[in-house]
Amino acid sequence: MVEYIIRRLIFGIFVLFIMTAFIFIIMRAVPGDVVTLQLANSGATAEQMDAMKAEMGLDKSILGQLTDWVTKAVQGDLGNSLWSGQEVSQIIVDRLPVTIQLAIMSIILAILIGIPIGVISAVKQNTWIDHFLKIFSVSGLSIPNFWLGLVLLTVLSLALNWIPPLGFQSFAENPMVNLQQMILPAICLAITLSASIVRMTRSAVLEVLHSEFIRTVRAKGARERIVIFKHALRNSLVSVITLIGLQVGYLLGGTVVLESIFALPGLGSLIFESVLARDYPIVQSAVLVFGAMFLLVNLIVDVMYGWVDPRIRTK
């Protein structure tokens, strides 16, 4: 197991390196840089701009800049923002918790909504309840989460005269305010996620319910509740966990739009602002952090298989 995890980590670092090179090259191959943006209206001469670029290390070849960046990043120095001069690692440490909290709240909500609905759907297979829930889940997959956010905001403000409190506060500072600010974006992300969990749970539970060993369990006289919860649900957890791993990419992508709508200072809105400002070091590092989170969650998911399903553990 340990050997497996180490191998996966090495592989992950390798992928992150290719990702870095990919982002690096695209970002610099495209016209427009931070110096030109900053000094656009200041009447600076071409020499002054060149001097400033040299100071930021932007005058070197792309390969040279890449080597510089990787050498420093390995030592834990992600550089400074080209606009504010703040340390990038500090900015990311400030912003990351918001995005992680949003992602975790969404996953929990999605599981709370998705698994029960999926089980009900499977148990009531081909009844009108099943059809209705199926429509719910396909709709959930089709509604853009940012539109859902706008609709929720509109309805709540018109009907209940309620809007989320302004001015972001972290959970540690003020849990009540924080939860009020986070709950709507979390619901928006959770709806899509729960829709796919419903489908996965339904088909997995159905598959187990039709299997030989469930017939045995029923034959020995186990109660229906035990059949479903102890045997069917437990055996379908593997596919649900896999699904969550696969959907983390969607979840992290979704934070960009939702953090922008709900004015949350997370990593998603940071990346959006920084790309527009051509703040290379921040974009570079933030994309890397997103990639690392994605790979890490998938590693955790793969390790969890063994925990849920002992048959995989032995292999």
Partner: peptide, 20 residues
């Protein structure tokens, strides 16, 4: 290379390229 591209959340990669 495909793994590296797919490890970046889709919308973030799209946003990154479209914005550039």
């Amino acid at each position: 290379i495909m793994d590296a591209i797919m490890s970046i959340p889709a919308l973030i990669l799209a946003l990154f390229i479209a914005a550039l």
